[in-house]
Design a protein around this nucleic acid. Structure first.
Lengths: 152, 152
DNA sequence: ATTGCTGCAAAACGTTTGCACCTAT
DNA sequence: ATAGGTGCAAACGTTTTGCAGCAAT
């Protein structure tokens, strides 16, 4: 993703190339998604937009988040709770996730080896890599120290 | 998991220790799960049992697969389609998965480095590892050669 | 003018829950 | 005897779909 391009320009270009229409709702959703702090579910984004007096529909949010994932402005994440979550890729370094099963906290980490291994395996098996997901599920070693633990 | 113990004995022991009751339904579900070839969803197992004239209920299947995962006879898997799948761990080597987004094929692979990295990261961040999931999503390089591609 | 997109509501889907009855302890 | 498990159906939460009207091309 070109670092110097505005997100809205990247999205507009992607929509044009796929013969998708350029609509104000789609850009409204892009803005809300980039502004959202951290990982969010489709419904969380929808509700936060509703709270800000937006008139978009749930269906349009679902549709647009899919498009934003396709053009790599967002990443889709699955943390094992059978729910799609998204996070912004725009001007962010790629990372993986550690999920605490006790308190729900999600810690992001970067590890270059994972990406290399993933590529090696694809090459060895003769496939073209599209994406990967590496999640580590943990338990708080010391529950008293975990700031999230009481909050759940 | 002790390699020389029968699966039903492992399960019985686990149930006893957790003060869970030993019921015929639970062992019927264990048998069906170990017999199932490959990855299966809860409903797939339920329906296959129904086809074999079983009288278990969907709720009991959900409940029992959870117990079988807790005692490590099964692993729960998420392949990004918002659906829990399971597979037998009994007398099998641990492995990860490559999922083809074009044709749905799932390829299992083993790579020792992944497990080491996962442990390193937990140690570095101060958490106790519980499990991890490493999925690689790919596209068929040559769709004509892919035996699964036409089937979807 | 055409065709894709939108909002809305209903449906679909996997999963969880409530409850009366049953059964392992 | 009693506490936990079962089967069934209803409820739940997330996602998809159908459709009439709207708006980008």
């Amino acid at each position: 993703m070109p670092k110097n391009q505005k997100a809205s320009d990247i999205f507009r270009e992607f929509l044009r190339q796929g013969k998708n229409r350029i609509t104000p709702e789609r850009f409204e959703i892009l803005d809300a998604a980039l502004e959202f702090d951290g990982h969010f579910s489709t419904d969380e984004l929808f509700i936060s937009m509703k709270n800000n007096k937006s008139r978009v529909s749930r269906a349009t949010v679902y549709n647009t988040l899919e498009l934003l994932t396709q053009c790599n402005l967002l990443s889709q994440r699955n943390f094992g709770d059978n729910m799609n979550r998204y996070e912004s890729n725009y001007r962010r370094k790629f990372h993986d996730h550690l999920i605490c099963l006790d308190c729900g906290r999600i810690v992001e980490f970067t590890n270059d080896k994972v990406n290399n291994i993933q590529q090696e395996i694809c090459d060895a098996l003769g496939y073209e890599s599209s994406s990967y997901s590496f999640n580590i599920f943990v338990k708080c070693k010391n529950k008293k120290e975990c700031p999230y633990h009481s909050g759940k």
